[in-house]
């Protein structure tokens, strides 16, 4: 790795850290400003005495100034200590950890499904541009983009679980294969919208490349269509990789709804429960983790341009054509 590339990587890393810092501040401020007395909330149905409130306030530093509170929170968060859940009374870190597996499995399965189906379908649609097959695929992808995961999930449950009985209705199952079997419908429901999105972006990217002069030139010197397509795909890889990065962010929004619909005890469901219960520490922690994963994904996507696109590699030494 040469010097400018390293500089580029470091600059992007710095920007990501700055963004994360800003996001954590935003997240914390949001909770800080949210209406309702947190201390009172924490006591729940127990006896609300002034002493109890004061004790809670002291324990959770609720009387400290905003920035002090923020500092306490964020400095502990980087060590993995996200505080105590109001709802369960247990530490937030292990709580989240126990819920991560199921979400990672569902989201991973959905990601694979949508990428492995979406990219090829998008390519086929682009190559057959304007033909009936393209219109059909584009039509289906518009429906996919328009269909919220939970609505699709319920329809899938109705047809495949209740109607046909091929898949279980709720729950996580036992063992690996059974567990996977339980995750098929949730993953498909999550993957549909995602896959449709990938189809749209892939198709647009490939269509744009197919219109370039270099395609005409390649055909003009007798390269077979398969070789032309290989060249086109190499060029279209950049927007496609970007779309895969965006998918990760999209996944987190969708997973809340899917886990609620299929009663899966994952991070999404934890988010829903915590939001409804106003369990501030858990919501803060979850939001921060999502922000972290999304930012790191964006960073990885940016760095992958260095591998895919020689122009980005060169532009790290920023040169611009002089005006004539």
């Amino acid at each position: 790795m040469n010097r400018p590339v390293l500089a580029f990587a470091l600059r992007r890393l710095g920007a990501t850290l700055l963004l994360l810092l800003a996001l954590s501040l935003l997240v914390f401020a949001l909770m800080y400003l949210s209406p309702g007395d947190v201390a009172r909330n924490m006591l729940g149905t127990r006896n609300v005495t002034p002493e109890a409130l004061a004790e809670i306030r002291a324990r959770y530093h609720l009387d400290e100034p905003f920035l002090t509170q923020y500092w306490l929170w964020v400095s502990q968060a980087v060590t993995g200590d996200f505080g105590t859940s109001i709802r369960t009374g247990g530490p937030v870190g292990p709580l989240m950890l126990s819920r991560t597996g199921i979400t990672a499995a569902t989201a991973g399965l959905a990601f694979l499904l949508s990428a492995l189906v979406g990219i090829p379908v998008g390519i086929v649609a682009a190559v057959r541009r304007g033909r009936p097959l393209d219109r059909l695929l584009v039509g289906v992808s518009v429906v996919g983009v328009s269909a919220p995961g939970f609505a699709v999930g319920l329809l899938l449950l109705y047809v495949f679980a209740l109607g046909l009985g091929w898949f279980p209705i709720y729950g996580t199952g036992d063992g690996f294969l059974d567990g996977l079997w339980h995750l098929v419908l949730p993953a498909v429901a999550l993957a549909l919208g995602l896959g449709a999105f990938v189809v749209k972006l892939t198709r647009a990217a490939v269509v744009r490349e197919l219109d370039q002069d270099y395609v005409t030139f390649a055909r003009g010197r007798g390269l077979p269509e398969s070789a032309v397509l290989r060249i086109v795909l190499r060029n279209a890889a950049i927007p496609i990789v970007t779309s895969l990065g965006l998918m990760v962010a999209y996944l987190f929004g969708g997973t809340v709804l899917i886990e609620v619909t299929f009663a899966l005890p994952g991070l999404g469901a934890l988010m829903e429960e915590s939001v409804l219960f106003k369990d501030v520490p858990v919501v803060q922690a979850l939001t921060l983790v999502v922000a972290f994963v999304v930012s790191v994904t964006a960073l990885v996507v940016d760095l992958s341009y260095l591998l895919i696109d020689p122009r980005v590699r060169a532009r790290t030494v920023r040169t611009r054509a002089v005006r004539g």
Partner: peptide, 10 residues
């Protein structure tokens, strides 16, 4: 146009 007739990433 020699600027567009070659694939930029090869």
């Amino acid at each position: 146009d020699p600027f567009t007739s070659l694939s930029p990433v090869h």
